[in-house]
């Protein structure tokens, strides 16, 4: 009876999870094995056609490593840029902390479309940077800042930086300041303390931040679409293209699943490699 009642308590959550997470996945899974058809989203019967098309054509297949590398580069840049920010905020006086916190969070208040569009204004061939350099006579042909991996990674890193800083900050702030003092009293200097104590102790935050940014980056659509101008082919762009423009539901679903499974595997491997026995 007691057990039944506790099941009753989790029932609403379980229903929500089933309805909005499990069911869509199952639908996509089934759809990915549907036979393709002309003139309609999918046809009768089942086939492996969607997967064959993805892995069989280099144009599509190469988008997967391309997307994953893009995600990894974005994650790395966010970590390298975000760690000093988080460290600085964590050690700032209370007065400054609130302000810095606000600055880090502020990009989230502006829509992702607006921010991505902002980058196109900066990076475009006749954008602010190229125009300035050309008028100064530094260059006579625009630098390729947009419509390539560089531009997309830059914009993605900007868009997702807060998602790296926040977990790092929470890890650093939950660290007892006496730990660093203890290390000093034992004779460790600044850099040694960072390398041997602060960074390893903040590892749960590093892990969370990296996973978050990686997953967000590889599944993002707006930023690669706007800044990459459809010339940087990520799997996510291809999925949307297949589902909405080409009307090939089985093919789109197959690609979406391949991307999700690949991302899941990479996250698992990453978590395994950075496993902490001490938490």
């Amino acid at each position: 009876m007691k057990r039944f009642r506790s099941y009753l308590l989790i029932a609403p959550t379980a229903a929500l999870i089933f309805l909005f997470i499990v069911l869509p996945y199952v639908t996509v899974l089934i759809m990915s094995f549907r036979a393709p058809a002309d003139g309609q989203p999918y046809g009768e019967g089942f086939s492996l056609g969607g997967y064959a098309q993805f892995f069989g054509q280099a144009y599509y297949a190469w988008s997967l490593p391309q997307t994953i590398l893009l995600g990894m580069a974005t994650t790395l840049i966010c970590l390298v840029l975000g760690y000093p920010i988080a460290l600085h905020i964590a050690t700032a006086s209370r007065k400054w902390r609130g302000l810095l916190y606000g600055i880090v969070l502020s990009p989230l208040l502006i829509g992702i479309v607006v921010r991505s569009y902002g980058w196109t204004i900066l990076l475009g061939n006749s954008g602010v940077i190229n125009a300035t350099l050309r008028n100064l006579g530094v260059i006579d042909r625009p630098l390729p800042l947009m419509y390539n991996n560089f531009g997309v990674i830059l914009a993605l890193a900007h868009v997702f930086l807060p998602f790296m800083v926040l977990p790092l900050l929470s890890a650093l702030q939950s660290m007892d300041p006496a730990i660093a003092q203890a290390a000093r009293s034992l004779g460790a200097r600044r850099f040694t303390i960072f390398r041997r104590v602060t960074f390893p102790v903040s590892m749960p935050g590093v892990q969370a931040g990296c996973i978050l940014v990686f997953v967000l980056a590889i599944s993002s659509y707006v930023t690669p679409a706007l800044v990459g101008g459809m010339r940087v082919k990520t799997t996510t762009l291809l999925v949307v293209d297949a589902l909405i423009d080409q009307f090939q539901w089985p093919f789109g679903s197959a690609m979406a699943l391949v991307l999700a499974v690949s991302a899941g595997l990479i996250v698992l491997i990453f978590a395994r490699l950075t496993r902490m026995k001490w938490t």
Binding site: A178, Q181, A182, A183, P200, V201
Partner: peptide, 12 residues
């Protein structure tokens, strides 16, 4: 040598 109230052991 210093001993802290929170012990401040290195958790990792």
């Amino acid at each position: 040598g210093m001993v802290f109230q929170s012990y401040a052991l290195f958790p990792h």
